[in-house]
Simulated scan of single mutants.
Amino acid sequence: MNINFDLNDLQAFRAVVENQGFRRAAESIRITQSALSRRIEKLESALGVKLFERTTRKVSLTNVGRAFLPQVERLLDDLDLALLSIGDGGANRRGTLTVACVPSAAYYFLPHAIRSFHGQYPLMKIRLIDVSANEVSAAVAAGEADFGVSFTGNLAPEIEFSPLLEEHYVVACRRDHPLATLDAVTWAQACEHDCITLDKSSGNRLVLDRALSGLQPGKHSVCEARHVTTVLGLVEAGLGIAVVPSIAMPISAHPILAKVRLVEPEVVRQMGVLKRRGRTLTPAALALEQRIRALPGTLTRD
């Protein structure tokens, strides 16, 4: 085969995959969309295959493109590692790092790691895909995200799960709420108060429904929302209490919100990092993952 393509063409290919389209891919590697299209056409011509299916609405990999992607990622990742060993450690590194995560991790938990990461990689752009647990797994499996942060569940075979922390579900309430003064609250006590709940599309709702199948409900929910962040906003407004994973709560003291341990029964879930099997993280992605792994040690209780 006459290898008539270069590193820029391979980087363009990965950028289109990671950004799910040509416009955002061109922006991420700072070239025009027409220049990006020429690089992809050049690569496809050199290989003699079609790598992408393109419609007016979306861009997706062909079967050949999906098979080619892991090889490109491995080559570029190995090159990135080699350059890092002789480079400046990250201060001048550019690019986009994509992380898929459940919304409960995106609000209070991940920003601390991203802020620390930004200090070492100030020119790197972080793209957060904050979606449901199933969508996190799918984004990592498809190569749309460098890695994911989610909880255990029905993971695709090509996904490996690495534990991060075991977290408890807690009562979220205002600091002026009667429950805020307690060290722990039973589910029976919690059910006596107006409650804001997550709807059935939430992975957290599934975890809770399974754990509490034998518990008789107390008061009816006064409001139901899809995302934990929305629920916490309603709690702050004084509409009621809510049961949320502890990772969704502020790491340090909050002027309005308080969290109280839930018991009888305690409900826990395993949070972790999701990666695609066989893929080596880039130095930048590895640096962010390490910062995320350091976060559980900083978690404090109210």
Rank of each mutant, 00 (worst) to 15 (best):
I31W: 02
E289W: 01
E266G: 13
R301F: 07
H193N: 08
V131G: 03
L83G: 09
T181E: 11
N134E: 14
Q33V: 14
Y121T: 09
W187G: 04
A133M: 07
F147D: 04
E266Y: 12
W187P: 07
V149F: 08
D176H: 08
V260M: 04
V59T: 15
Y108G: 00
H220V: 11
A139G: 02
V102D: 00
V72R: 03
D88G: 13
R226P: 05
V231D: 02
A211T: 08
Q71I: 14
L110M: 15
L165Q: 06
L164G: 10
H168R: 15
A287E: 03
L182W: 04
Y121D: 05
L286E: 13
E236W: 12
K219L: 12
L110K: 06
A133I: 12
P111L: 00
F151Y: 14
T186M: 02
L128Q: 06
L198D: 02
A26F: 01
S37T: 14
V273S: 01
L76S: 09
A287S: 14
L239N: 05
P250N: 00
L257A: 10
D302C: 06
I159H: 02
S45G: 08
V17N: 06
D209I: 07
A248V: 07
A180I: 11
R24T: 08
L234W: 14
R14G: 00
S213F: 06
R24H: 09
L97E: 04
L299C: 12
L232C: 11
S104P: 07
T280F: 01
I31Q: 03
I241V: 12
E289G: 00
L43D: 00
A25M: 14
Y108D: 01
L75W: 11
L61V: 10
G21D: 01
A105Q: 02
G87V: 11
Q120A: 03
R291M: 11
L75H: 15
N63T: 15
I159C: 03
T55M: 10
F13K: 05
L179R: 05
L232N: 10
V235A: 04
